[in-house]
Amino acid sequence: MFERILIDSLIRSMQVGSLYALMALGITLTMSVLKLPNFAHAEFVTVGAYTALIVSRNVSTNPIIILGLSAIVASVVALVSHITVFRPFEKQKSSIYIMLLASFAVGLIIRYVLFLTADTFDLFDQRIQVPLEIWYRTDNFILSNVFFWVVPTSIVLVIALSLLLNATPLGREMRALADNFDLARVIGIPVERVKWLTWLLVGALAGISGALWGIQTSVSPLMGWVVILSVFAAAILGGLSSFPGTILGAYVVAFSENTIMQVLNFQFGLSFSFKPAIPFIIIVIVLLIRPEGFTQFFKSNRSLKR
């Protein structure tokens, strides 16, 4: 019995961790290249999920089409946020605190637009219309088609993203902005264009993770907001700069929220209502004891910061 629960929670940790990784990489990328702790990332995720919901109902239930359109819509929302809100603040040389507040405002606006939309079309807590199938079964556990979409898709995207960053001219220019913005300008890198492309990339990542999250659970206007703290916990574990650190952080947070929580519940009767506190605890502990997160473990790897 306990073994079964444990295996179930481990599968869930993997699935949730993969999605946290996708979302947290977006946060890390925004933080290092665009110098913005972007809380509106939560709503980019929700936008992706709602796009997936609407596409699955009206256009196609093909996962590729669903994920593709979610990526496109969320990346447009991200770019529009930059052009209409973040760039004007940058132009005024606003401090990072003002930018942080601006990102809360952007998130709030998108969230309530989604509330309005959901209200009008009755789209609260809906399931995305992809059939749930069991693809693999043993005596101890079951793997659904969702698992086989979420985990490999995340892994492929993470690999593609690191290839983009480390092996393409655009990736090199993004890292240049992250490393030394003024020098990037001095040597003639078109920084605004690189920022636009970064926003599109970040939005697409958020959109895809939102669609997958929606397929795995259900879609509601608060869904991104509910997970954003866990995602920030993962990014903070990565020192807000290291890619491998962020990925490891994502699985650590997911494992703590699922498997460790499960064990604590089973052995000590700790209530599951304690679960939302876990990312808080992780953030506080990391910031107090090890503010650089896992970055030191990955010294040989290129992080996005010095």
């Binding site: 890292r175 240049a176 490393d179």
Partner: peptide, 16 residues
């Protein structure tokens, strides 16, 4: 310089 990058990457950025 771009301190997180290699010498070659730094130079490559200058001839982008």
């Amino acid at each position: 310089i771009f301190a997180s990058m290699t010498v070659r990457e730094n130079l490559a950025l200058a001839v982008r």
